[in-house]
């Protein structure tokens, strides 16, 4: 390793500290990658953040329209400061959530489940070489992916136990939402409206439950932010 004095020829900003959350570093590389993925996946940062932190993962969510990418076709452009800021804030939330989750004892995500998830993931690529190439392109290692999956599982279990388990949607609430929100939306879009009883258990109630879970999680995250020490350095 070479030690050099300041003032030597400087290069392009490559990585560094983007933020520090309760002493835990978020790197510029992580921020850039998150912002890029959000753009490429056409996900709103909020959704990507939820996914990365393991918070909102019910299949029911998929029934809601994804937030369109703020910059269509942006994958060819430089990342904007606003995109980077949103990505940074998303990672801050992720860190806060996981820090809170790991305060509580639990059995832990077992390796078999993670192995299965890894298998499913690699199966999305035509060859192992293609999988490895993408990992390399994104600057990721197998251990990092496994570690992320483990975190996401733990957060999911925590959210299930703390929030989802206590959310109850009554039939009256479901009927009211169905009549006041779902039916008008479908009519506006010209979609045939099924009977409430046909979709209540598989569609309406899961969505309403997820909304309530999301509301509580958001409130929880706001509280975590208020109690945290956060330093922001980049962008």
């Amino acid at each position: 390793m070479i030690a050099a004095q300041a003032g030597a020829q400087t290069g392009e900003l490559f990585d560094g500290i983007a933020a520090v959350v309760n002493g835990e570093v978020i790197s510029i590389g992580e921020v850039r990658r998150t912002a890029l993925l959000a753009r490429e996946e056409s996900l709103g940062i909020g959704e990507l953040c939820a996914a990365q932190s393991g918070l909102a993962m019910e299949p029911a969510l998929g029934n809601q329209p994804a937030t369109p990418s703020p910059i269509p076709g942006a994958s060819d452009r430089e990342l904007s400061p606003a995109e980077l800021q949103r990505a940074r804030e998303c990672l801050i939330d992720t860190r806060l959530v996981f820090r809170e989750v790991r305060r509580f004892p639990r059995v832990g995500a077992d390796d078999e489940r993670i192995d299965a998830m890894m298998d499913a993931l690699t199966a999305q690529f035509e060859t192992p070489a293609a999988f490895a190439a993408e990992m390399r392109r994104l600057g990721m290692g197998l251990e990092e992916i496994r570690s992320d999956l483990r975190r996401q599982l733990l957060v999911g279990e925590y959210v299930d136990g703390r929030f989802r388990a206590t959310v109850e949607i009554t039939e009256e609430q479901a009927r009211a939402a169905w009549a006041q929100e779902f039916v008008p939306n479908m009519e506006t879009e010209g979609v045939p409206v099924p009977a409430f009883e046909e979709v209540a258990n598989d569609y309406v109630i899961p969505i309403l439950r997820q909304r309530e879970v999301n509301r509580r999680v958001q409130s929880w995250i706001l509280d975590l932010r208020e109690r945290a020490t956060i330093r922001r350095m980049y962008p």
């Binding site: 996946e41 996914a51 393991g54 993962m57 998830m117 993408e134 990992m135 992320d148």
Partner: peptide, 30 residues
Amino acid sequence: MSSVHAGRLLLAATVLATASFAAGTAAAQN
């Protein structure tokens, strides 16, 4: 794997899932 876990996998491993959509774009600043 349950449907819940399948959903988690899809979103949780966003990083690599994205790779399959983004192949060849080479947009990252890195």
